[in-house]
């Protein structure tokens, strides 16, 4: 990653050029009472940056990311895709699940730089031409979200399952979603929703 630390292009220019959202640090009005805002800005620019290219929900993005950013941070804070939630930020809950080249991955435990050259799908990418997916509709009809905070992750894991197995058994559904906790404990309804979205509608 060392060679990709870019000193020729300032991050501001680079991000501006790719249409990605502007980082908050660049837009902060400086209000510190006893420190120079200038030195702050400079120091923050010193954070190692890596230029990556990735596809998110079918759109290609070229972005300079801080090496310490997780994929969740890139999506939520810099690409404006806040549908991916953070429940624990340490690989325990699955709220942050996205599809990485079609496979479910915890985006909180995936560094943004690791997504270079890969394709990411988030909950925002499930709706196609204004229509929710069959699975999303089943989640609506079967009351799968209570508070809704785990819902994006449940949907992504279930989407991956249905892509590789259009007719999973209840056991297979539970196994595929085992990494997605729901503290509202709406597990029964979530499984019922996924069943309804299988090819046979759970019959």
């Amino acid at each position: 990653m060392k060679d990709s630390h870019d000193s020729e292009v300032s991050r501001r220019e680079f991000i501006g050029g790719t249409g990605a959202a502007i980082v908050a640090a660049n837009t902060i009005p400086v209000k510190a009472q006893d420190r120079s805002g200038e030195s702050n800005e400079r120091a923050i620019e010193d954070v190692p940056l890596t230029r990556i290219t990735l596809t998110v929900n079918g759109t290609e993005h070229r972005v300079a990311v801080e090496d310490r950013w997780t994929l969740t941070e890139l999506l939520r804070d810099h690409l404006g895709l806040t549908g991916t939630r953070i429940g624990c930020n340490r690989g325990e809950c699955g709220a942050c699940t996205v599809l990485l080249d079609g496979e479910p991955a915890y985006s909180c435990s995936t560094l943004a730089v690791w997504a270079h050259g890969r394709s990411v799908q988030t909950v925002e990418g499930l709706e196609k031409s204004g229509r929710v997916s069959k699975l999303q509709q089943a989640f609506i009809d079967h009351n799968a979200p209570q508070c809704g905070f785990c819902t994006s992750g449940q949907l992504m894991s279930a989407t991956a399952l249905l892509q590789r197995n259009a007719n999973p058994t209840v056991r297979e559904i539970r196994e595929a979603l085992a990494g997605n906790l729901c503290r509202c404990s709406n597990y029964n309804a979530i499984v019922e929703a996924v069943q309804a979205a299988t090819r046979t509608g759970g019959a």
Partner: peptide, 15 residues
């Protein structure tokens, strides 16, 4: 169905 179910399943619900 919840009147905000759509927002909850599309990631649009704003926490």
């Amino acid at each position: 169905p919840r009147i905000d179910a759509y927002e909850r399943v599309t990631g649009q619900a704003t926490y």
